[in-house]
Design a protein around this nucleic acid. Structure first.
Length: 765
DNA sequence: TGTTCTCTGTTTTTT
DNA sequence: ACAGAGAACA
């Protein structure tokens, strides 16, 4: 297939191109509507990537655009890689010409390198990561003499990030937001932070976009160059764009207006990072004449899974609304299981996994998706005792680990002696007798003379400011770094990395440490050298790692997947386990406290993402008790459980979970009908026998009839207790009721202090 | 400079 | 419960 030059097809043939044949009606429309703004609303599992890559291939094949005239942006490197691979499958080598296919940040960096001087930078600028950013922010706070206890570097970095996400340079931050940080000093600190970045010839992630915006706004000619170049634009995961990215896209799209945004408002789960669902909700207003194409036919899941997910997401108010449908045959219903505690939950899920495995299901076809990473531990422990192979996605990133960052700092300092953050990090690591005292001297000189620390070190060596020991050590350090910089010219980067880690004593430092993590760290350093060896130049490698935080992933064959719901977006598995559906965990209490209803809707979208990952089987569970931060907490089932439509769900709840033993039944007069029926069901001989033998009841329990439309496993209603009453709790002992909120009581326990408990857990004392 | 202690903040984290 | 940071102390 050729891409260059005029179309290979006549008007008529275009519509019959072979790659269009496998698409459904909507997908075809999404491919063939090439001109003008298009919003492709693609629900989970509707073949979005296929539509999107075919669209790009079509633009190339019909000669509508040359590969370098297409801007295609994604959020992750992984998504960019996948898109590239799939386009290559359709158009072959022409994909290599698509130099504007990448993440927002990598494309922003490319553009910024070409016009760095317009942002007051040299084109060799370094890109700081989150850790550098925090340390820089901390330095800024220190320099401003602000109480570092109350106002942390991390806090400032977050505030600045928030502004950058909204495309705000210091002069544009609304005055009424000045008081968000350090009693009104926020904006000044932001200015100081930017000034430091300029001196360091560095940018943070947010700057990659914000500098682009400033350049475009102040240099019409530059903007126009790019507007002309990008005849077609394509944006993946549009629901996750922040304001800065939105502004960037809108500026670039003004000329040709051929922008196609693909997304799903129901899967917007990064609001806490500055993503604005409003961007997608507003698309038709922003781009008049936009064509909205809905992909609603789902190729992934069974009707029950889709039905459960749809019912759940319907509780959200702020959405464009889609109805997913499928031709697939009815499968099993979504299973909901209530258990006693987190440990049991892990045990039962692992039982299920093993039973699936014995039926011939591959481990890599199953995934456990959790809300927060602390929930992973219970599963890892259980997997380990059973000897089940598993694979955690996410977790500590390779390039964020201490040893990776140290090694990179050595390399950065060799590349550029101006890299103060790198200097700071490794000048005394391993210990070279260059402690706080010596560093203070260097910092003072650097600040006074406006030079980098390395230069300050040379100046200090000319003076009498340092003790003899420190001086000897510093001479040695400076000379060694100089020598490495010379060596770097005629060595491969990998050899250099190896040499540096040896000669610096860095490897030795770890070998001498008795920390149990040492073998892992040494392995990581070897892996890092391995990664370096894939690059021809040091610059190339450092530039790569600045924008990529993970090594390329190995495949998870023969392993169960364990990851957070966020990490699972975009993936699919035949069997999905969703543990921990309890109030305060999911939806997470913290996000609700911070952002209220908006956060609740986002949590609900997260639940929706979780359910829609499943192809055949989706198993939700909740525990009545859970250990969090070392303390036992009682929990009630998540409201999301209640929101699942009854007809698509099977509920299995153990007896005794919520104070429903026979004796409790007699004393709890306030239970409503649904609760009674649930208890009555489990208080039968069949269930008891099933429990005793460790098996599940022969048939699934009947759905509860107390509610017309949704499942109910919690028992709402007025509490039978009153404020001030003395009560007894099995775990916490005696206490006095402080306040009552429906079923939730706040009790001041005599031995363990104030706690929130569910009223069925306590009895009058 | 190294060790031990106390305090604090513990959701998600594509770049 | 627990890790990481910072302070106190040897």
């Amino acid at each position: 297939m050729a891409a260059a030059g005029p179309s290979l097809f006549s008007e008529n043939e275009e519509e019959t191109a072979p790659y269009l044949k496998t698409l459904n009606e909507e997908q075809r429309k999404a491919v063939l509507t090439t001109e003008g703004p298009v919003l492709m609303l693609a629900g989970a599992g509707t073949g979005k990537t296929r539509a999107l890559t075919t669209r790009l291939a079509h633009l190339l094949n019909t000669g509508r655009a040359q590969p370098w005239q297409i801007l295609a942006v994604t959020f992750t490197n992984k998504a960019a890689r996948e898109m590239k691979d799939r386009i290559a499958a359709l158009v072959g080598d022409h994909v290599e010409g698509m130099k504007w296919l990448g993440t927002f940040h990598s494309i922003g960096a490319q553009i910024l390198r070409r016009h760095a001087e317009l942002a007051g930078l040299k084109s060799s600028f370094t890109i700081l990561d989150a850790d550098d950013q925090t340390r820089l922010a901390k330095q800024v706070i220190e320099a401003a003499n602000i109480d570092e206890k109350r106002w942390t570097g991390r806090g400032l970095a977050m505030v600045i990030d928030g502004w950058k996400n909204r495309g705000l340079t210091p002069d544009k931050v609304p005055a009424n937001e000045a008081y968000h940080f350090a009693d009104g000093k926020g904006i000044d600190l932001y200015k100081a932070y930017q000034a430091r970045l300029t001196t360091l010839n560095a940018v943070d992630f947010g700057d990659l976009l914000v500098h682009n915006l400033t350049i475009f706004q102040n240099n019409a000619d530059v903007l126009e160059e790019y507007q002309r170049r990008f005849r077609y634009m394509l944006v993946d995961e549009y629901q996750d764009t922040n304001v800065a990215q939105y502004l960037w896209l809108r500026l670039l799209a003004q000329k040709h207006k051929n922008i196609c945004c693909v997304g799903d408002d129901d899967q917007s789960i990064y609001g806490w990072r500055g993503a604005e669902v409003e961007n997608i909700l507003r698309f038709e207003k922003d781009f008049p004449g936009a064509e909205v194409i809905r992909l609603e036919r789902n190729y992934r899941s069974t009707p029950s899974i889709l039905g459960a997910a749809s019912g759940l997401i319907e509780a959200n108010k702020e959405r464009l609304g889609k109805t997913l449908w499928t031709d697939a045959e009815d499968g099993e219903k979504v299973k909901v299981r209530g258990v006693w505690d987190g440990e049991e939950e892990a045990r039962l899920i692992c039982d299920d996994i093993e039973s699936e495995q014995s039926k011939g299901r591959a481990l890599s076809d199953m995934a456990v998706l959790v809300r927060a990473s602390f929930q992973m531990r219970a599963f890892e422990e259980r997997f380990n005792t059973l000897g089940l192979a598993y694979r955690v996605v996410g977790g500590p990133r390779f390039y964020e680990r201490e040893e990776s960052r140290d090694a990179l700092s050595y390399l950065r300092l060799i590349r550029s002696s101006d890299d103060d953050l790198a200097f700071d990090r490794i000048v005394n690591k391993p210990k070279r007798g260059l402690g706080d005292k010596a560093l203070q001297v260097l910092h003072k000189i650097a600040r006074a003379q406006g030079v980098p620390l390395m230069a300050a070190a040379r100046i200090a060596l000319e003076s009498d400011d340092l003790h003899a020991a420190a001086r000897r050590s510093l001479v040695n350090f400076v000379d060694t770094v100089d020598r490495w910089a010379r060596d770097a010219k005629d060595m491969t980067p990998a050899d250099l990395a190896e040499l540096v880690l040896e000669e610096s004593g860095y490897i030795e430092m770890w070998k001498n440490s008795k920390s149990p993590q040492v073998p892992g760290k040494l392995d990581n350093l070897k892996e890092l050298i391995q990664a370096v060896s894939e690059f021809d130049t040091l610059e190339g490698y450092l530039d790569h790692v600045a924008l990529v935080s993970e090594l390329s992933e190995d495949t998870g064959d023969g392993q169960i997947w364990l990851m957070t719901l966020h990490a699972a977006k975009g993936l699919e598995f035949p069997v999905v386990f969703l543990p921990g559906w309890e109030e305060e965990i999911f939806p997470s209490k913290r996000s609700l406290d911070e952002k209220g209803n908006a956060a609740l809707e986002e949590e609900r979208r997260l639940a929706y993402v979780g359910v829609t990952r499943a192809e055949e089987s989706c198993r939700i569970s909740f525990a009545a008790n859970r250990q969090i931060y070392g303390r036992w907490q009682t929990a009630i089932p998540s409201r999301f459980v209640d929101e699942l439509p009854e007809e698509h769900v099977d509920v299995v709840s153990e007896p005794g979970l919520y104070g429903n033993s026979a004796s409790d039944l007699a004393s709890h007069s306030s239970f409503d009908g649904a609760k009674l029926r649930e208890d009555a069901y489990y208080d039968n001989p069949g269930w008891r026998r099933a429990r005793a033998s460790g098996a599940r009841p022969a048939s699934s329990p009947p759905l509860l009839e107390g509610r017309a439309k949704t499942v109910s496993v919690s028992a709402p209603g007025a509490s039978k207790f009153s404020k001030g009453q003395r009560v007894f709790h099995q775990k916490f002992g005696y206490g006095k009721i402080q306040s009552i909120e429906g079923q939730k009581l706040t009790v001041e326990f005599e031995h363990s202090g104030p706690k929130k408990v569910i009223d069925t857990f306590v009895e009058a004392a």
